[in-house]
Nucleic acid binder design. Sequence first.
DNA 1: TAGATTGTTAATCGATTAACAATC
DNA 2: TAGATTGTTAATCGATTAACAATC
Lengths: 210, 210
Amino acid sequence: MEKKKNISMAVIKRLPKYQRYLRELLDKDVDRISSKELSEKIGFTASQIRQDLNCFGDFGQQGYGYNVEDLYKEICNILGLTKKYNTIIIGAGNIGQAIANYTNFQKINFDLVGIFDTNPKLYGLKINDIEINDIDFLGEFIKDKNVDIAIICVPSRCAQEICDIVVKNGIKGVWNFAPVDLLIPKGVIVENVHLSDSLLTLSCLMNGST
Amino acid sequence: MEKKKNISMAVIKRLPKYQRYLRELLDKDVDRISSKELSEKIGFTASQIRQDLNCFGDFGQQGYGYNVEDLYKEICNILGLTKKYNTIIIGAGNIGQAIANYTNFQKINFDLVGIFDTNPKLYGLKINDIEINDIDFLGEFIKDKNVDIAIICVPSRCAQEICDIVVKNGIKGVWNFAPVDLLIPKGVIVENVHLSDSLLTLSCLMNGST
DNA sequence: TAGATTGTTAATCGATTAACAATC
DNA sequence: TAGATTGTTAATCGATTAACAATC
């Protein structure tokens, strides 16, 4: 499967979309698809699809196209979906609770193993069968339970502090919902969900001063 | 304020980040900032900052830099934050409820005026003082209340159907949380928050097959 | 074999960075 | 005035698209 290194972020950001469309084809029992057909569905050019996929290997076959199931599996593998992840949520507010209740991520092996907050009133309370814990136990917990991903749902002003704690305790992936840019050491990955940035993009485009 | 048209999406996606950092400077009572200083904070090159800002007008002054307050106001204006928006949420599940409870958007004039769902058990129930309504009233409501933005939080399989309804009733902006690519006519703006895509990007990067 | 479609190289397009004259 | 920093043009870099030989 290995091929080129230094895959551009542009390519990486398209991969989940490939995964979604291939999943759809798979569910419709489609066996094979050409870059041209996929192009029409997914909205990328056929050329781009072939370029993208070739970053990771020669998945197609001349004159035939791509085998949907094989390609789907390859993409899942590239996306790291063949592994299991232990995740924790820090901040049991609106977003934190929503993510905790959203079971779809658990279906693809992102296992929620802990929820943390600073509000003592919440301690012991369960969301989706996971107890909310005192944030003081955070560091200890991460090491004990081999947590892979920290989902940061705390207010902006505490986000960097929380990030520092989880990173210090060995977390390698941070999914950040706080509207701030976190500083992290090399080797740690942060992926941001900046809801407010997204909403502002929408209003910006709606205003057409662009 | 008008200047060039055809602003690239790359520029637009950076604007909310400018707004955030300028807000921060403003809160710290900083009067002026040069592209070089801002560059060090925000992480874009000084050159890029000047290029970006010049898409919209000559906001700076040679030898001085940019007036923080003025620039902040200009950015807010470009982002459409000087207007008021009526928004509705369709789908009162986890995400829908979390967004409904999140009051920060209301502080910047995104007013939640309605929540809709298909589950009769939820009708009449209030979130953040807004009653959950039968989705059958959706079209009527949009026209009556001059709704600007529909926030789609329904499951994937119903998202396109809901989108079609809101668009048919005059909605010009859709904030889509369903993990699907919605088809919309020209003139309507869709901004996606694809949480699962974001999580998959994280696991992809953590796996370093890239 | 003939037709289809890939993998890959070359051409194009767009976005970022560098440089500097204009000017506050 | 001298120094600083913009606005803007030119150079560079990277990403997308087009083209086509390789080959199933």
